[in-house]
């Protein structure tokens, strides 16, 4: 009797889980399947093909957009990681009151609607006479990435005690040497996950990029958007599939990297 009950409970729980996963991933799975569809139809299966992937790789607009996306994601994440880490150290050494205020201010860009951030950045660039293009996208991405880095570095900094830094100074290290030898290794997992988080955020951003890019430059997301308006081409499915997989892999690394590091010890 009891075993039957537990079995039913087990099945019910799993059924619910599967249902949730279907709701979340069915649309993406559909897109993935269609990216291998020979026929251009969205409802009929015309046989398996990799043509759309080949077409995608042969089109220079797509490849340019891919390169732009990756370069912007990497540079913005790197620069945000450096600025964000420096900012975290400064914030961490503040007195409680200013600390709370500054943390509140840095959190606003994360809560702010992307469209507001996007439009305001665009207006600012135009007002200051900066022509929209690659560098404005990069600056915009750095801007919205910094809070994510601060968010992931701060907890690590709170864990490291000030006395290890002082101990290093005490043993004759210069402040810079002490930071890189003693403090940085302690907060490195936080900086890395901040970097990866920023990289992902930059990779899949559309709205802010859309407003801050100039004519003639595209990232993958803006390219897909403009392509879709002109009538959808299945090579866009292929591209979206690849973006999804890339983001998925990055997220998995972000989530598991700190744990793996801990177990290593």
């Amino acid at each position: 009797m009891k075993t039957l009950k537990t079995r039913i409970k087990y099945i019910a729980e799993n059924f619910y889980l599967v249902l949730t996963l279907i709701f979340l991933y069915a649309p993406i799975m559909t897109m993935m399947v269609l990216s291998f569809n020979q026929s251009k139809s969205r409802t009929q299966w015309g046989g398996f093909t990799l043509d759309w992937y080949l077409e995608m790789f042969s089109r220079s607009t797509i490849m340019d957009a891919l390169r732009n996306t990756l370069v912007i994601a990497f540079l913005s994440a790197l620069i945000a990681a450096i600025i964000g880490t420096a900012a975290s150290i400064a914030i961490n050494s503040m007195k409680p009151m200013p600390k709370t205020i500054i943390m509140g201010i840095t959190n606003i860009p994360m809560l702010n609607a992307d469209i507001v951030t996007g439009i305001s950045l665009m207006l600012a660039f135009i007002a200051f006479g900066i022509s929209l293009g690659f560098k404005t996208i990069l600056i915009a991405h750095i801007t919205f990435n910094i809070p994510y880095v601060i968010l992931s570095v701060m907890p690590k900094l709170k864990q490291t005690s000030r006395s290890t830094y002082e101990a290093a100074l005490d043993l004759g290290a210069s402040p810079l040497y002490a930071f890189f030898k003693v403090v940085f290794p302690d907060i490195l997992p936080g900086v890395l996950s901040g970097f990866l988080l920023a990289f992902t955020m930059s990779l899949d951003d559309f709205i802010i990029t859309h407003f801050t890019r100039g004519a003639g430059i595209n990232t993958l997301s803006t390219l897909i958007y403009s392509e879709v308006r002109r009538g959808i081409n299945p090579s866009m499915y292929a591209l979206s599939t690849i973006i999804f997989l890339a983001v998925l892999i990055l997220l998995i690394i972000t989530n598991f990297a700190p744990h793996a590091r801990k177990e290593e010890k």
């Binding site: 006395s163 101990a167 003693v182």
Partner: peptide, 8 residues
Amino acid sequence: FQKYALFT
């Protein structure tokens, strides 16, 4: 130091 402050 009071809390040893070793480099872990």
